[in-house]
Amino acid sequence: MGALLDVSGLKVNFGHVEAVKGIDFALNEGEITTLVGANGAGKSTTLLALSGLVRKAGGKAVFAGHDITRLPSHRIVQLGLSQVAEGRAILTRLTVRENLELGAYLRKDSTAVAADFAHVLDLFPRLSERLDGLAGNLSGGEQQMLAIGRALMARPRVLLLDEPSMGLAPLIVQEIFRILRTLNEEGLTIFLVEQNVRQALRIAHRAYVIETGEIVLQGTGEELLDHPRVLEAYLGI
């Protein structure tokens, strides 16, 4: 079975610094794949490069048969690769409703958009209470939910998430991971970049560990949870 997203030899440079040094990974349809690693290992850079927000210095990315290596970011979104950026990138001066509606910016099937809107509110009931409030007044957890909801409004085939646990209380983190699992059970392919290694490995089918721009380990989520190197370096056991 071919992978839904296949990345090979991906390289990203920032000036003279090689942030990502030619990594390979693949996302299988219907699975949760995670890329974990420490601060500055190149996780976010990898995601930004996938979405076309950062220039790739080398390598190739093929998504559902399309070569997306050199595509501009709006075309990549159009193909079905939606990213929830780090720091949530909420439009704080717009209302929650407007944020969600902008998520469906590229879609013209208004009845399906309305259905997805209802579905997002089902997933995140807290958002429905604050639909007409400014997004900037939401709490951190609610903003993360809004960011995920907004990405879902594009009806993506793959959801890319950049550290959804960042700066959130443990309870909220658990809630968000539970929702990611639900979304996956509904058939959504998810690529999760995380520093919260334990949580990410628990829900992931496939996992990659990145260190200073290189993939150093890969396997199923369970395998890596028990891997001595992961235990020592990331879980502090």
Binding site: S51, Q83, R93
Partner: peptide
């Protein structure tokens, strides 16, 4: 409006 508030967010929405 989206571009004005946050360019990254806007391009991730497909603008």
């Amino acid at each position: 409006e989206a571009i004005k508030v946050d360019e990254t967010a806007a391009s991730l929405m497909g603008v």
